[in-house]
Design a protein around this nucleic acid. Structure first.
Length: 223
DNA sequence: ACTTGATCATAC
DNA sequence: GTATGATCAAGT
């Protein structure tokens, strides 16, 4: 496996060199198996790129590149570069009385600096390929949007308004189930102080928001 | 077509 | 069970 990149520039250079390369190729270089589809290997592309770029695996609650403070995200895009799926961020504070202020939140930390690697193609995983990567930090507008969504969502969570814990809130961030199955349950106190069970939730970035990130950076590359 | 709710594998 | 990595697939 490649050693971790020593600097952000080195990471960007490695990622740039991946543009246009097929995932099958990259997997072959590392002697990793290529699944026929992603139905039972949903994290395969993300794991593959972690290996290819020298991320340190398995460091819980740490960025993928801890020494650089950078998070790696792969994101499936269509032929126009628009995201086809939402982007996982982190677990939501379900059953937590005080989520604390935005500026100390896990969402803000995880999104402080992100390397997005677009993945093109609809066929078997090995036949898909990497696009031009985007190193991103939220600008003032984006951070304000994220903060507002986070404030709204964590207020609903802290208030125990369980019936409001659906995916239709938020312009950038949304709240969705995050579990192995819907029978997964966690205990929380609802708005009337009763103990109830509900499925764990996580925060995701809407495709409309990530589309802005990818398109905004693309304009800088090709004015 | 798109979004929301549900789900899959693996490590610790 | 909680965390990592996400996509699947039903519903609208």
């Amino acid at each position: 496996m490649p050693a971790p990149p020593a600097s952000e520039n080195e990471l960007i250079q490695r990622a740039d060199a991946l543009a246009g390369r097929s995932l099958g190729d990259l997997a072959a270089e590392l002697h990793l198996p290529v699944p026929p589809d992603l139905k039972r290997h949903k994290g395969w592309i993300g794991d593959l790129l972690e290996h290819v770029l020298g991320a340190e695996a398995g460091n819980a609650s740490e960025p993928d590149f801890p020494h650089l403070g950078i998070e790696l995200k792969t994101i499936p895009v269509d032929d126009r570069g628009r995201p086809k799926q939402t982007t996982w961020v982190c677990v939501a504070p379900v059953g937590v009385l005080d989520p604390g202020p935005w500026w100390t939140s896990a969402v803000r930390r995880r999104l402080a600096r992100v390397l997005f690697v677009p993945i093109l193609g609809d066929g078997p995983p090995g036949e898909r390929w990497c696009g031009v990567p985007v190193m991103w930090s939220p600008d003032a507008d984006q951070e304000a949007t994220l903060k507002q969504d986070w404030d709204t969502l964590t207020e609903l969570l802290a208030a125990g308004e369980v019936w409001q814990w659906h995916a239709r809130h938020g312009t950038a961030l949304q709240l969705r189930p995050k579990a192995a199955t819907s029978s997964n349950r966690t205990w929380v106190t609802d708005d009337e102080g009763e103990w109830v069970q509900t499925v764990p939730r996580g925060f995701y970035l809407r495709t409309s928001f990530t589309a802005g990130i990818l398109a905004g950076e693309a304009r800088l590359l090709d004015p």
